[in-house]
């Protein structure tokens, strides 16, 4: 059962304020992920304070890196059920967990951060993992 919207709104805002586009419907997901060339970072948001409480700050740190994906999008697990299910349909063999982070290039998953790779880790460590993936797979140099 979804949490009250008033409770999750700050968590949604945390993501959009760092530049992520929130996808709340199947149509949103298809438009953003379905036919995207280039690189797309997909953040599966969660109310879980144990893990998402570190994942969101990690995303903010990573998005300050000099090399970034072409676009960053987010869906909210447990809240926008249809949109999340659709987003996960683009992630191939990778199993659903939340929070989690996927980097896609031309529609293929090239890097995945599972929930178990977020639990107990600092935002700095998670962000370092992400920026390493950006350097390896992305070509969008900020300010270049």
């Amino acid at each position: 059962m979804p949490y009250p919207e008033s409770l999750v709104a700050p968590m949604r805002a945390e993501m959009t304020q760092m530049g992520a586009t929130e996808l709340r419907t199947v149509a949103d997901v298809d438009a953003a992920i379905g036919s995207s060339a280039g690189t797309t970072l997909v953040f599966v948001n969660s109310v879980c304070g144990c893990a998402a409480g570190n994942a969101r700050p990690a995303m903010k740190m990573a998005l300050g890196h000099g090399v970034l994906p072409d676009r960053t999008v987010t869906v909210f697990a447990g809240q926008d059920l249809d949109a999340v299910a659709r987003a996960r349909s683009y992630l191939g063999e990778f199993q659903p967990s939340s929070p989690s982070i996927a980097l896609l290039r031309d529609g293929e998953v090239v890097h995945f951060v599972h929930r178990h790779q977020i639990e107990g880790r600092s935002p700095q460590a998670i962000a370092a993992d992400l920026t390493k993936a950006f350097d390896a797979h992305c070509s969008n140099s900020v300010g270049a």
């Binding site: 109310v47 144990c50 409480g53 969101r56 700050p57 178990h116 639990e119």
Partner: peptide
């Protein structure tokens, strides 16, 4: 909102994948 935990007072492994 970052770091907010909804389930304080639980086992140390609560929420951890084991």
């Amino acid at each position: 909102m970052s770091g907010h935990v909804f389930h304080p007072g639980h086992h140390d492994l609560h929420g951890i994948t084991v």
